[in-house]
Design a protein around this nucleic acid. Structure first.
Lengths: 312, 312
DNA sequence: TAAAAATACTCCATAGGTATTTTAT
DNA sequence: ATAAAATACCTATGGAGTATTTTTA
């Protein structure tokens, strides 16, 4: 809690450092681009505000006193820290740097971000991402509360104060037990679902609304017996023959293909059966260009997954 | 080599920190003891000079942008460093602190300073001594060249620009082979020396002049065959029966009593046969009170050695 | 529409310049 | 005696104040 003002200025410290380097008031003044009297006055003022004699004055090269040397060493540290701020500024202006706090949906982040982080570390070594997962509804609230700088979530999102960068559409596949009748159908279509029981996530998830909408349209009904809190839980329920469900493509790629063979996933026709994913931030956050840059980077990573349809 | 000026001030950084702490321009201004518009202007100016938006403005609590947080973290570091300078200032004003570069005579330092350093570390934990040994003549030159902040050496020293703190008189004992005739005499006096051969150090040492003077007065003669460059060398030459010599009391206590029994040391009567030891510094160095404090500390340590006569 | 920050302006403290004096060797 | 730093004095920049307008949720 440093609220008290310091009795010296960076400028004075800089002059002291120049004086130690040049060992002459005249030369130090020149190095600082000011006149000798101006530098004398500032050094004197620094000595008075510290209550210490910093310089041994006399003919020939001046020397710092012991106190002067001690102060000067720390002055250099401070000025270096100042230069560090300036260096950081350049990074922050022109690209992605520092630490970004990013929130991601639990239905997407774990299956996409590991790939993004690897690529980012190569293309933007200065950037560090703090990734926190939550359900989309919570993400939005936390974004408004300032917990996150930006979130990676399903679109659309409400709020005029938010900026969005669309990233890609992620198809939803229909997951069913391995011995289910529909597992023989290559491209399942809406009518195939009529009368089926569909398992869904809790309403905290955007996916829940979407699944409900699909079911209403196709004549399937949403199970009210059970609501999952993770995609893994849904998959296990499907494997136990409690119903069917929709799983996002990246989850399928990451957790099912070549790994879990307790369920079968069949693709859907048409764009309706996909979800739209984007980056969202507060319009007031003032880092639009940096965040657009991050969006680009994520799209670059997404390009590696042919099942995704790039947008934005 | 940081000679370029920074485009921001400590004051601005302090305002930024206050803004992050209070989350309101109004409260931050109050915490800084200025008006809200003044703080607004400074924050704005800081943002402009960095070319970054640091604050998310809006109704309710303000938030720093990602860039703002990064800058602010380093700003806190800088301000803490500034406070560190202030803390150090207090130490330097009121006592002994930081690192002092001290030169000491090789005929004294190794036998006194280990005791002093131990005591100092207890009484002045903030102080660090860099001790460098040299012959007295070199010490004086190095002091004037600014190599040392102060020196511990034999008095008197020449030079109107030097300040001196007398510490103590250190008796000189006469060292002789164990089987020497004078070893039977308890308190050797001047006339006993007539006709003896006395070994001396090189003329770089103040002790050399003093031994010469004693010899001239007592009718002893100084050996021109050999000049030692250390007290240990002199002692060994005495043990080899090449002559007698004078050894300072602290050397005798440290290196002969209870350790080397190849020579015998007999005390002398009278103050002429002692040397005066003091601290010397450049009068222009402006740290008189600190150095007087160090002198006091050394006298305190010297009090533990009854053979020394305190002065000053 | 109310609360909060930004703007407009004025004032004054202070950093900086030039001319000159003082100091130290 | 002379080179270097300190002092004196003036100017101008900019930090801070008050009054007011603009913004935004």
């Amino acid at each position: 809690m440093q609220t008290s003002s310091l009795p010296f200025t960076l400028r004075q410290l800089r002059y002291l450092v120049a004086l130690e380097d040049t060992r002459h008031f005249r030369e130090a003044a020149e190095a600082c681009g000011i006149s000798q009297p101006s530098l004398s006055v500032q050094i004197k003022s620094l000595e008075e505000s510290l209550g210490l004699t910093l310089v041994e004055r006399g003919r020939g090269p001046v020397r710092l006193t012991q106190a002067g040397r001690e102060i000067c060493r720390r002055a250099r540290d401070m000025l270096d820290a100042g230069q560090g701020i300036l260096d950081l500024t350049a990074t922050l202006q022109t690209g992605l740097g520092g630490t970004l706090r990013m929130g991601t949906s639990t239905t997407l982040g774990p299956y996409l971000m590991p790939h993004v982080v690897g690529d980012l570390h190569k293309s933007h070594p200065e950037l560090r991402l703090y990734i926190r997962e939550a359900a989309p509804r919570d993400l939005l609230r936390e974004l408004n509360d300032g917990v996150h700088d930006l979130i990676l979530t399903q679109l659309p999102v409400a709020g005029a104060t938010l900026s969005v960068a669309r990233l890609f559409r992620e198809p939803l596949g229909l997951a069913m037990p391995v011995d289910h009748a529909l597992s023989a159908v290559d491209n399942v279509d809406g009518p195939d679902l009529t009368g089926q029981t569909i398992l869904s996530l809790s309403p905290n998830y955007a996916l829940h609304d979407q699944i409900s909408a699909i079911c209403m349209e196709t004549g399937a009904h949403v199970s009210r017996e059970y609501e999952g809190t993770s995609l893994d839980a849904l998959r296990q329920m499907v494997a136990l023959d409690m119903g069917l469900t929709f799983l996002p493509a990246l989850y399928v790629r990451s957790e099912i293909e070549g790994r879990a063979n307790d369920v079968v996933v069949r693709p859907f026709r048409g764009r309706r059966f996909s979800r739209s994913i984007g980056l969202v931030w507060r319009a007031s956050s003032g880092a639009t260009s940096a965040f657009e840059g991050l969006a680009s980077a994520i799209r670059d990573t997404a390009r590696r997954f042919p099942e995704l349809v790039l947008e934005g």
